[in-house]
């Protein structure tokens, strides 16, 4: 069975390896360039000195950060390509697994040999799953390495797209995609419709979890500080900010999506406070943000991965049952 799986999928394995090498050929040079700029410009040292406290005296990193951002923020679009990789495993490895056999009638050849089709499907899923698992670990490590300077420069690892391509979540996504592809194959029983179904369903489930579940994995924290505080929220803390703004003495959000700093370094702190109170009153005005702190990254990763692994187990169970009904 192992021999058969390898014999049937070796071409796919070679194509996958070739595609990943091509991707690495793009990512490794850009990653190296990004990392050397990050260090050589002094940004790395500056951010290390700044630390990851939530409130800091925002100092000299801003200019360096802007310069780095101007040069490299646009390359972050490559992360969008990386996000798509797991679904490709589902579409090209998962969907044809059963569908191609049924479409060509070869399931009647292979399922009438001496081994049960339960063993057939579990071995196939096991081997294809194991290979994609190894690939997805490599992919997650590579993506984390590549994105690290961008994440450190204020993007944060919890942010959409950045979160999705590193840590352990890609393992969950990839195995889920493969299982979904296999199940779609047992439903559609033809390769192209199975591919279409698995693509659509994968995007739908990912979007649902991403938009409607992930923000609620843990209750958000709030951070408040007076507008004349000498410390400001640390833009480089890596927090996932849901909302921020300025609230006045009654608690009303008077300046959404903004911050006010009347700190002492600006000079006339008292005059600044008075002007602001006139516009937004009554005092005291506070900067406010609702957010997930950066140190919850692994908790969020574990929950997200858990959801997708549970879905994988469910889909494989259903697929095995469905395979038993195909003739």
């Amino acid at each position: 069975m192992i021999w058969l799986t390898w014999r049937q999928h070796r071409k796919q394995a070679l194509w996958t390896a070739a595609a990943l090498l091509a991707l690495a050929a793009v990512l490794v040079p850009t990653g190296l360039a990004m990392r050397s700029t990050f260090q050589d410009s002094g940004l790395g040292a500056c951010l290390r000195a700044l630390g990851h406290a939530e409130l800091v005296d925002n100092g000299g990193c801003e200019a360096l950060s802007q310069r780095f951002g101007n040069k490299y923020d646009s390359t972050a679009f490559l992360a969008v390509l990386l996000v798509l990789l797991p679904v490709l495993a589902g579409v090209f490895l998962g969907a044809p697994l059963v569908a191609r056999e049924v479409e060509n009638g070869t399931h009647r050849l292979v399922w009438t040999q001496g081994i049960s089709r339960r063993r057939w499907i579990l071995t196939k899923f096991g081997l294809v799953g194991a290979v994609t698992l190894v690939l997805s670990v490599g992919y997650a490590l590579g993506a984390a390495w590549w994105l690290e300077p961008l994440a450190d420069n204020g993007l944060g690892r919890l942010r959409y797209l950045v979160f999705d391509v590193q840590g352990i979540a890609p393992i969950g996504y990839t195995l889920f995609a493969v299982a979904l592809g296999i199940l779609a194959g047992t439903v559609a029983r033809r390769v192209l419709p199975a591919m279409g179904i698995s693509l659509t369903a994968f995007i739908a489930v990912r979007a649902l979890v991403e938009l409607f579940a992930r923000p609620y994995f843990l209750p958000a924290k709030t951070l408040t500080y007076a507008i004349d505080s000498p410390l400001m929220a640390n833009r480089f803390a890596g927090s996932w900010i849901y909302q921020e703004g300025v609230r006045n003495g009654t608690g009303a959000l008077v300046l959404p999506d903004g911050r006010i700093g009347c700190g002492p370094e600006g000079g006339d702190s008292a005059g600044c406070l008075a002007r602001i109170a006139q516009d937004y009153g009554p005092a005291p005005l506070t900067n406010w943000q609702e957010y997930q702190p950066a140190d919850r990254f692994w908790t969020f990763q574990a929950i997200e991965t858990g959801i997708f692994l549970a879905l994988t187990v469910l889909l494989v169970t259903v697929a095995v049952r469905r395979v038993r009904r195909i003739s």
Binding site: R7, N104, T106
Partner: peptide
């Protein structure tokens, strides 16, 4: 089976190997 389905990219020798391993 009807239409004698076989894996078209396998050689006969490979199909025989498959049979040995699946039986």
């Amino acid at each position: 089976a009807q239409d004698t389905p076989l894996y078209p990219d396998f050689t006969a020798a490979e199909l025989i190997t498959m049979g040995r391993r699946l039986n």
